[in-house]
Simulated assay, not measured.
Amino acid sequence: MTVTLLSIFRRREGMSHDEFVEYYETFHARIGEKVLAGYTSAYRRRFTTPLAHEAGPSDPDVVMEIEFPDEETMQAFFASIANDAETAEMIRVDEDKLFDRDSMKVYRIDERVSEMPPVG
């Protein structure tokens, strides 16, 4: 059974949304791809744009999803990071360049999908 983690992040103070997206996709996502390789079936970044208001200080800038094929693979990934201080430090240092660490939230998703009639 697939295990999905959903993370909600805001950019660090002093960084524009465009700078945030550029840095994330140019640098941070490459780190994610490297360390997640062999463990995950999907690594998605969904950058947000408010529709009905201007972005406020509590609005997220990105919703990130990581899908693991099963619980065992997810646990193996976290064990690999816990046992590799150099990689864990590399991730922490890069997160400090990008995220408001106090706002970081991570959730395990229990998904339900409704069958919908065709559009049109």
Rank of each mutant, 00 (worst) to 15 (best):
E67H: 08
D100T: 00
D96N: 12
S7Q: 10
R46K: 11
V63N: 02
T49G: 00
R10C: 12
V113G: 15
R108L: 15
S114R: 10
Y43R: 05
G32A: 04
E89M: 06
F99E: 00
H17Q: 04
A37F: 07
R44A: 11
V93F: 12
F20N: 02
R11D: 06
Y107P: 05
M104E: 15
E89F: 07
M15F: 15
M90N: 13
R12K: 02
V119K: 01
D59A: 06
T87L: 11
E86V: 14
A79M: 08
S16C: 08
I91R: 02
V106I: 00
E19G: 11
A79R: 10
E71A: 12
F77E: 02
F77P: 00
L6F: 11
G38W: 09
F78D: 12
L5F: 00
V3W: 01
K97C: 15
G32L: 00
A37G: 11
R44W: 14
R30Q: 12
E95K: 13
T49L: 08
R92N: 04
D84R: 10
F77Y: 10
R44L: 00
E86C: 11
M90I: 02
D110V: 07
E71I: 13
A88H: 05
R30V: 07
R92K: 10
D70Y: 09
M1D: 14
T40E: 13
S80D: 08
R45D: 00
D100H: 07
I81R: 04
G14M: 10
F99K: 03
P117F: 04
F9V: 08
S103H: 01
L6A: 04
P60E: 09
H17P: 03
D102T: 14
F27E: 13
G38C: 03
S103C: 01
T73N: 00
R30Y: 02
D100I: 03
F20I: 10
H28D: 02
Y23T: 04
G38F: 06
Y107W: 13
E13K: 12
I109G: 09
I8D: 03
E13T: 05
R101C: 14
E13D: 07
A79T: 07
T2N: 13
R112F: 15
E33N: 13
V62D: 02
V113R: 10
F20Q: 13
R101Y: 06
K97S: 15
M1V: 09
S41R: 14
S7M: 04
L6S: 09
L98Q: 00
D59G: 06
M74I: 03
V35F: 04
Y43P: 00
L5R: 09
V21M: 00
D18V: 15
R108D: 12
S7N: 09
V113H: 10
E86S: 04
R46N: 15
T87D: 05
F9E: 03
E25I: 05
L98E: 01
E13M: 09
T40N: 05
S80P: 14
G38K: 03
E33H: 14
T73I: 12
P57H: 07
L6Q: 06
E67C: 15
M1R: 13
V63R: 01
V21E: 03
G56S: 10
Q75K: 01
D96I: 07
M1Q: 13
M64D: 14
V21R: 10
V21C: 05
S16V: 03
P50T: 03
